[in-house]
Amino acid sequence: MYSVTADNLEISYGTVKALRGVSFQVSRGEMFGLIGPDGAGKTSLFRILTTLLLADAGSATVDGFDVVKDYKEIRGRVGYMPGKFSLYQDLSVEENLEFFATLFNTTIKENYHLIKDIYRHIEPFKTRKAGALSGGMKQKLALSCALIHKPSVLFLDEPTTGVDPVSRKEFWEMLKRLKQQNITIIVSTPYMDEAIICDRIALINEGKFMQIETPQNIISAFGKKLFAVTGDNMSRLLNDVREMDIVSSAFAFGDEHHVTLRNPMLDHTDIEAGLLEKGCSNIFVKEINAGIEDCYMALSQ
């Protein structure tokens, strides 16, 4: 039996279609990533699955229960961490955790083993108000609160947004360890390369799933050589690259441009030569392996 299923979910707000027919299945204990930019429909999907919103069309189940008919059953079984920090800022770390434990009819002691790994990072600050925690600690507390009742499915809506890179990495490590508890995790993120840890990921854009695959398969399906280009005056450089006939696509990625070519026989020397001809200076081109984000960009074109 699947832990979570969705069949042709659709929802719109006014004239804006947030989801246009989304279907997928997630097995028990699987970590499933939803990857897409802001406004792609990730939060709407989470809210439908956590019984907070009614879909306009389609159906979904969580733990075998229908999200509309059996919403009460689902509400005791899932853990949900919304995108916005949703704990009480004026309550201390410990009070928050205790409140959510009681809300779900359990105690901190009973399920301490589940959260120990995460909670011990913030336990030294347990008398501090939640509002005074750093972004990373807030998310750890929120995760602890969402986990305290041993949910069978954990929904994490952009848990690492607004968190520093070190804490982000830590957070994903924790999720990886949670998988061993046989908890199904559905997690969304706009940071695509974090998603490599997931068992499978769905690339979502404008309310539609473009692809559901394992990260490895998505990357290996990229099927083209990828080059990273740097040089002086990066914004002019991007225009120059795009103007070249041999170039198929070029996108800015942080401090370099990722470029693919039309002809698989061509090489980084061909890009260099073309750019020098256009008068660019300090050019450096190297072949790299594609990441999830490259695949996403290629798919959403």
């Binding site: 019984t51 907070l52 919304p82 916005k84 959510f100 809300l103 969402a146």
Partner: peptide, 13 residues
């Protein structure tokens, strides 16, 4: 407004 209602609703209470 602060979003805690979302979490409260997704609880057995």
């Amino acid at each position: 407004e602060v979003g805690t209602m979302e979490v409260l609703l997704v609880s057995p209470m």
